[in-house]
């Protein structure tokens, strides 16, 4: 088990670094997809089978394809120089590492044992989603509606004659 976790963790970290360090956006996306697959595998070991599947479908399937579409269709795949201000880069690195250290130190105290419970089935999640979380669930529908309207309004190409509304 620790070996499996080691492999997965290494994959996740390396592909995550790949996302932020690749020169071309398409490589970033491909790294991100690898990262997401690895995380899906990790979910399987954490009694979250349904989540793992949804994760792959929604993230790796839908969202990443959306990113790829945008990059491909708008021809954005050009290399970019990392020449932002040095100060910002180093301070970002320092702050990131210190955050890991700080949080790591809070995790130093050993945590309790795993509670073993049958969970993660579609049936159980669906039951919870439609009873306890029914209001947030319905509200997320509203959120999606708002997102759709927002996207359409934002991304619409203005009509040449100018009578857009």
């Amino acid at each position: 088990m620790p070996v499996f976790f080691g492999i997965i963790a290494t994959t996740i970290i390396l592909s995550g670094l790949g996302v932020i360090l690749s020169k071309r956006p398409v490589y970033s996306i491909l790294s991100l997809i690898i990262c997401l697959y690895a995380m899906g595998a990790l979910y399987l070991t954490l009694h979250a089978e349904f989540l793992a599947i949804v994760h792959l479908i929604v993230y790796a399937g839908a969202i990443m394809v959306l990113f790829l579409f945008v990059i491909m269709l708008m021809n954005l795949d050009r290399p970019e120089h990392l020449n932002r201000s040095r100060l910002l880069q180093w301070s970002a690195l320092a702050v990131g590492i210190s955050l890991v250290l700080v949080i790591g130190s809070t995790l130093y105290t050993p945590s309790g044992p795993w509670v073993v419970a049958p969970m993660g089935s579609v049936h159980a999640i669906g039951r919870l989603l439609f009873s306890k979380f029914i209001v947030p669930f319905e509200l997320s529908a509203v959120l999606f509606l708002a997102a759709i309207v927002g996207v359409v309004i934002t991304a619409k190409v203005p009509h040449p004659e100018g009578d857009t509304e």
Binding site: R84, L88, S91, A92, V95, G96, S98, L99, V102, I103, S105, T106
Partner: peptide, 22 residues
């Protein structure tokens, strides 16, 4: 107007929050 600065500041704030716990 630089997103990077904002993120660094945000991370600093998160460190601050966790420092309290530590």
């Amino acid at each position: 107007g630089n997103v990077g600065t904002y993120v660094v500041l945000m991370l600093l704030a998160i460190i601050g929050l966790f420092l309290k716990v530590v």
